[in-house]
Every structure is written in structure tokens, then in C-alpha cells.
Write a protein that binds this DNA or RNA. Structure first.
Length: 371
DNA sequence: AGCACA
């Protein structure tokens, strides 16, 4: 299959090389500095990929690209930019196409200096700073009332209609690069890693104040995940505080996260406060980091190994029949280091419905392991 | 650490 060839060890040489793991906001000059000694660079494309940390460099001749790829394939010193190792392979295309990319909706109208996004009661809002009023006016005129193209939106996001007006601000004060805010004029501004993870940790709003919008949906980051965390495990853990409606597990930036939906905010808040920082398993394994999701109603497959919709009828039979993790919990399971963990997992001494009528996190007998 | 476009 052609789509998998990009991961094969042997790739078809191309005069275009693909560079990944680039540092934040890596600029063309840095790419050129790295590549120019191998040949004539005829084109570049930066800020490629979901994280905008990939790029393409096109050489005038395929032999120049071969010399570069070959050099770093056998070099003891990896290619580096700003001290960060850069991985280089042939691109799976043979030329760079620099078409106008409305990838950034607002960049189509001029250089976007800074963006700050935040939640208000009226909805999601963003401040977008251009060079001058004329550019801002052009963007406003063109975009007000329109919607963001669907292909630019994440899955499960419906239409996003833009309502635009002039801000009272003239110069935004961006504290760090994150999924909420950007300063494109300052590539060395620190990256807020937790914010880049989309973990929705208390972030700075445009006014500089902490914002943490409550939600009936919790976002769980699972730290130190030595053992598999299944939908069923999460369902058991979070059902201690109320009826769980939906669960979705997904990978983001190499770590496992989950969304857990309750019917209301107060139940979610109880669960969040009770479970935050606690571990599903003894020994500090699978520690839960809980924040409020910006979702309020998950759009998940009713039944899969990564998601569940408990609001739909007749799933219990399916669950009993088809979920390996459920059956496995009562018997030997691949991947479990020993029987003791299983015993603890099934033994309700952890995050199963708390015996404690106060609803406090279940910690009986194992206080040292919580933290 | 993994491929642009619509």
C-alpha cells in the first residue's frame, strides 16, 4: 500500500527531503543552514503537519538529496537545529507545491502576529492581531459571518461560524505558545507543554486571569500507565460518583487520555475532586490527572475498544460477550506482571465504588500509594 | 519522530 511506504526503511529517493521533529517555529533560514552544504536548495515548505514541526526542502538535483539523507543515515552526529535532533528522509513526493494555503484562516489576509483564545459565556472567542487596521478590516470583511472550512476542523466538530468585531486591544500580551495562544512574532517564547497537550489545565485568558470552565465531561490524563486502562476500568472507577454516560479513550502526544461524560456538571465536579491525582492501581500506576473538558456531549462510537456510549440500550449483553478486558479481569491476563495487581484490581481496594459513605476517594489500607 | 493539497 502506498500510504505505508513512507515508513519503510527503504524509500524511493526524491529531490525533496522531509524533515521532522523540528524545533518550535523553525524558520526557513535554519533549514537552509542545515541543508545548503549538500546542494542547491530550490524550494522549502515550513510549518508542515499537525504540530507544524515538519518541513520539506527541495534540492535542485536528486543526487544532492541522496547525499544529505545518506550522510545523516551513517553519521554519528545527528542533524540538529537549535540543538534539537532533526530526522530526515526522502519525501514521498517529488516536488514542493507552494499553493496558497488558507490553512490559517486569518493568515490569508495578512501576517497574523498574535492569537489569544478563551471561553466566554457567549462561546469560544479569539483575539487575532494583525499588523494594522487595514489588514484587520480586510479579514473582518471577508470572514465575518462565514464559517471555518470543515477540513480545517478536528473530527467531531460541527460548523464553526465566525462573528467578528474590533477588539479594544491594540497589542496582545501573549505569555506562551500553547493551543490557546500564539505569538508568531516571537519564536523563542516558551511553549506551555501542558497547554499544547490540550489538557485544559487552568490557562490564562486574554485578561490574564485563570479560567477553568466547568463541564459535565472530564478529561483524564493517565500518567505512569504501566497497565492497560480499558473503557471498562474507567467505567468502574468513574461510576462511583454517578452514572457515566459516555467514555472515549484516545492517544495524544504519545500519552493516553480519556474523556468521561456525566449527565451534569456537579457529578463531574464530585468525581474530579475525588479522583484527581489518585492512582487506578497500586504502586503509583495509572495516576489520573483530571480537568474539565470543553466538550459537553461526546460523539463516540457506541461500542468499541476505545469508546462506549452507555446511554444506548442493550449494550450490556454485548459488553459481556465481546470485551476481552472484562473476561480477562477474572483470570490470567497477558501484560499483567503478576497476580497481585489483578487481585488488587478486582479486590475493590482501589477505585471501585468507595465503601466510605462520605464518598471520599477509596484509600482504605493503602494510603502510601495515593498521591 | 512520520508527509503538504481540499
Amino acid at each position: 500500500m502506498a500510504s505505508s511506504s513512507q515508513f519503510r526503511y527503504t524509500q524511493t529517493p526524491s529531490k525533496v527531503v522531509h524533515l521532522r521533529n523540528l524545533p518550535w517555529e523553525c524558520v526557513e533560514e535554519e533549514l537552509i543552514d542545515l541543508c545548503k552544504r549538500f546542494g542547491k536548495i530550490v524550494n522549502t515548505k515550513t510549518n508542515v503537519g499537525a504540530n507544524r514541526n515538519q518541513a520539506f526542502v527541495e534540492f535542485g538535483d536528486v543526487n544532492q538529496a541522496i547525499s544529505m539523507v545518506s550522510y545523516y543515515a551513517s553519521s554519528s552526529e545527528p542533524a540538529q537545529i537549535r540543538g534539537k535532533t532533526v530526522y530526515i528522509q526522502y519525501s514521498n513526493r517529488h516536488e514542493i507545491v507552494n499553493n496558497q494555503s488558507p490553512g490559517e484562516v486569518f493568515s490569508a489576509y495578512g501576517f497574523v502576529h498574535k492569537i489569544a483564545t478563551f471561553e466566554k459565556a457567549a462561546g469560544f472567542q479569539a483575539l487575532v492581531q494583525f499588523t494594522d487596521v487595514d489588514t484587520a478590516l480586510a479579514a473582518r470583511t471577508a470572514l465575518d459571518g462565514r464559517s471555518i472550512p470543515k477540513y480545517l476542523l478536528p473530527e467531531h466538530v460541527g460548523s464553526c461560524n465566525l462573528r467578528m468585531s474590533y477588539s479594544a486591544h491594540t497589542d496582545l500580551n501573549i505569555k506562551f505558545q500553547s493551543h490557546r495562544s500564539r505569538d508568531y512574532t516571537n519564536p523563542y517564547l516558551p511553549v506551555n507543554q501542558t497547554a499544547m497537550d490540550g489538557s485544559m489545565q487552568p490557562a490564562l485568558g486574554a485578561d490574564g486571569k485563570r479560567v477553568e470552565t466547568q463541564s459535565n465531561v472530564l478529561l483524564a490524563l493517565i500518567e505512569n500507565m504501566q497497565y492497560a486502562v480499558t473503557v471498562d476500568v474507567l467505567h468502574t472507577v468513574f461510576s462511583a460518583y454517578g452514572t457515566v454516560q459516555k467514555i472515549a479513550i484516545f492517544e495524544k502526544n504519545g500519552s493516553t487520555q480519556a474523556l468521561i461524560q456525566y449527565s451534569d456538571i456537579s457529578t463531574a465536579t464530585m468525581a474530579k475532586e475525588a479522583l484527581e491525582g489518585h492512582c487506578i492501581y497500586d504502586g503509583g500506576y495509572c495516576k489520573l490527572r483530571l480537568t474539565y473538558s470543553r466538550h459537553t456531549d461526546l460523539n463516540v462510537k457506541a461500542f468499541s475498544d476505545k469508546s462506549r456510549d452507555y446511554t444506548l440500550p442493550d449494550l450490556s449483553q454485548l459488553v459481556g460477550q465481546k470485551v476481552p478486558g472484562v473476561a480477562a479481569a477474572s483470570g490470567p491476563t497477558d501484560g499483567w506482571p503478576n497476580g497481585q495487581v489483578q487481585t488488587q484490581y478486582m479486590g475493590s481496594s482501589y477505585m471501585y465504588p468507595p465503601a466510605d459513605p462520605t464518598g471520599a476517594p477509596p484509600s482504605s489500607g493503602h494510603p502510601p500509594h495515593y498521591g
